[in-house]
Design a protein around this nucleic acid. Structure first.
Lengths: 321, 321
DNA sequence: TTGTAAGCGTTATCAG
DNA sequence: CTGATAACGCTTACAA
């Protein structure tokens, strides 16, 4: 069916190797200009496309990198994925996307990974790396990264403290934390910062739990909560999707944001800038994180026995209202 | 380095084939329960992972599907990608994402495609299929699909007409169309509908052109336009990202939406529901489109010489303010 | 029920 | 500068 090196070779009465050499165009291979021309011409005319599987089999490289995150439905991870996509394409790599939750060790999603022919993995989500059945290079990103892999940490603690303090300082009497309960709550920078600040100031903690990370869930949850317990005047949300859902839920009830309730999100997704008024949030250095992570991975791809590479980036609070 | 079938075979004193048979677990292969156990056990213990390249080389299948769109930075395409991602994973396929613009025939992005070892391609963007240097099955989606490939068309014309008519009917005297100029403007349902309705009603057309599809560009463009030419009281935007950027630009100038300017977008991305007030838009049947497209592709994967499959879906106007 | 042999399309290696 | 040959790890087809 498809045209192979052999086809071209036979057509031109040369060996497969000659064709391979011309097409791969390496500086170390010397070919007569005449045959070079003939081969290129024939390849073009016959519509030759290299077979990646065959190449991968012999070289051991696929030029594919996976980007894994807890959920590709989250706007934040989509933005991260987009940045990686650009970076990878620039270096002639392809991106394969996947989801991976700690609970789903044996789910379809992570099971697929075992089969993956990948040159490396970029994974967002602290400690998530440990669940990947993969022996190649892995770079972990996010808060509280794995301690075995290369890692680009993002420290959300200082900005989270500032966020909560800012709510209190601007006069809020009742500041709640809206979050989706997870397994590693006690390690979560945002959760810890919220708890610490409230205790330090002798305030009562108030947690509003959404069933999942979706906007719609947050929208419903806040309304139920307000009906039952009245409305806090400051809300620190665990991420921007939750913040946006909460915002909408409050507006559904004719509650003014930010005049009656001040709201702060986390992650810094583009959407926060386009709300009216723009939403305050903790902006993660997405671009820097992606560039660094890809850099780490590329280095390790070149030289496997490098010492562990790590870097910690700071997120910053951006107040917009 | 990695464990192969041969390693397991030698360890157990059986042939590679026996191991392969056990691991592939096909109903047509009969294996003694004893050896089956031994093989599974050894494979698990030795950490066997099948080499996809080798398998792909012999079977001719990679179990990878590409999703291509004009821009992975657009929220709409990210939503489409997300839906496909779920569908593909469910069927044990992986998704590779790529961008493809008609102008960039020879860019890095599309060049990469020529090398792709893919079982099939899902591509959003009318006529975009024609630019893909790929011989395998392709399903095209969106308005004005290719006429050679399987296609899931989305008809935006009726809803676009309704949108423009709704703006005029609600009293707008000056309705403009905000868009990014492209090559196929005259085939664009939204553009055509806008033009037709305005001419029919004897109104003057007004086009506001953004330099690209980003929100930030729309935000700046609308402000410049309003300063120069005053403000229309109705805006039909070519997509939701542009609508959202425009919304923000108007709010920057203290212009009320929807009281001073009514705004209608297109695509139906999630964000439109979370603005205040929620934004009117033309909702595309994303999920149905994805399911249908993947269905078409799966069918063709099974049987290559099927007659051309097509379906046309309707978008619907959703007025929210 | 299990084994043997061949080959998928490339690239690496060494010889000419 | 070019060619022959042997892998790479797996599956298909056929034999035992």
């Amino acid at each position: 069916m498809a045209v192979t090196l052999k086809d071209i070779a036979e057509y031109l009465n040369v060996s497969k190797m000659t064709v391979s050499r011309v097409l791969n165009n390496r500086p170390s291979d010397f070919i007569t200009e005449a045959t070079r021309q003939r081969v290129w011409e024939a390849a073009r005319k016959m519509g030759y496309v290299p077979n990646r599987a065959a190449r991968a089999l012999v070289t051991g490289q696929t030029r594919q990198i996976a980007f894994l995150s807890p959920s590709m439905g989250s706007r934040f991870f989509q933005e991260v994925a987009y940045h990686f996509h650009q970076l990878l394409l620039n270096d002639q790599y392809e991106m394969v996307s996947g989801e991976l939750e700690p609970q789903q060790k044996d789910s379809k999603h992570s099971r697929g990974l075992a089969n993956l022919g990948l040159d490396g993995i970029l994974v967002y989500g602290g400690q998530l790396g440990s669940f990947i059945p993969y022996r190649g290079p892995i770079v972990n990103m996010g808060p509280h990264c794995s301690e075995t892999f290369d890692a680009v940490n993002v420290d959300l603690y200082p900005a989270s403290r500032q966020a909560v303090e800012s709510l209190l300082d601007s006069g809020a009497k009742r500041v709640a934390h809206v979050l989706t309960p997870g397994t590693q709550q006690e390690f979560d920078d945002r959760y810890r910062a919220y708890t610490h600040v409230l205790r330090e100031r002798g305030k009562k903690e108030e947690y509003i739990l959404t069933p999942d990370w979706s906007r719609s869930a947050a929208r419903e949850t806040i309304q139920t909560h307000v009906k039952k317990h009245g409305c806090p005047d400051g809300l620190f949300c665990a991420n921007d999707d939750i913040a946006i859902g909460t915002y909408r839920g409050l507006r559904d009830m004719q509650i003014g944001v930010p005049d009656q309730v001040r709201l702060i999100g986390c992650d810094g997704i583009e959407d926060t800038q386009y709300l009216d008024p723009p939403m305050s949030t903790i902006v993660q250095p997405i671009q820097e994180m992606c560039i660094t992570a890809w850099d780490f991975l590329k280095r390790r791809l070149k030289k496997g026995n490098l010492p562990r590479q790590t870097k910690t980036l700071e997120a910053r609070l951006v107040i917009r209202d």
